[in-house]
């Protein structure tokens, strides 16, 4: 596993999400990809539909305050894009454990295998209590991105 993933871009990190609902937060994260030029405004609409449709099949709020909304088979990306947001008070994601979600990893992947690989590495970060306590304290998008790069590359 390479030391850096190049998946975490400070332009795709939000240290303080303002959305108050699951849908608003998902839209806010997808808009990062538009602002950075990774996808177009039109593509962001398609991606939003894909991610929300998946969310309606079952929550991606998988517990411990973490959610991983995603599109596994999106035509709008090549490889994978990840946007990460921290919400100070927590958003209701209908999570499996009922707890509000404070950290959202939005994953857009071009194929299921790439999704599986990226989701596995994100889960590696998400299951680490120390890293998950430290992530919300990074404060800036730049620090979040470098923190996540480091966490991604560290040994399991």
């Amino acid at each position: 596993m390479p030391a850096t993933s190049n998946y975490f871009d400070e332009k795709h990190c939000i240290p303080s999400l303002t959305g108050e609902t699951k849908d608003e937060v998902i839209t806010e994260l997808i808009q990062c990809f538009v602002a950075s030029g990774a996808i177009s405004e039109d593509e962001s609409i398609d991606l939003g539909v894909e991610v929300l449709a998946r969310e309606n099949e079952g929550t991606t709020g998988i517990g411990k305050g973490v959610a991983m909304p995603h599109a596994r088979n999106s035509g709008v990306v090549d490889g994978a894009l990840i946007a990460v947001g921290v919400h100070e008070t927590g958003v209701d994601f209908d999570a499996l454990d009922g707890a509000p979600v404070n950290v959202v990893f939005l994953i857009a992947a071009s194929d299921p295998q790439e999704y599986l690989r990226v989701a596995g590495r994100v889960a590696k970060i998400g299951r680490d209590d120390i890293e998950m306590r430290a992530l919300p304290r990074q404060g800036t998008a730049e620090r979040m991105a470098s923190f996540l790069e480091q966490a991604w590359g560290s040994n399991p």
């Binding site: 517990g63 991983m68 596995g120 299951r127």
Partner: peptide, 12 residues
Amino acid sequence: KSVMDVLFLAAP
């Protein structure tokens, strides 16, 4: 028993 743990396996 942990979804996050199971996902971590990235099992194709």
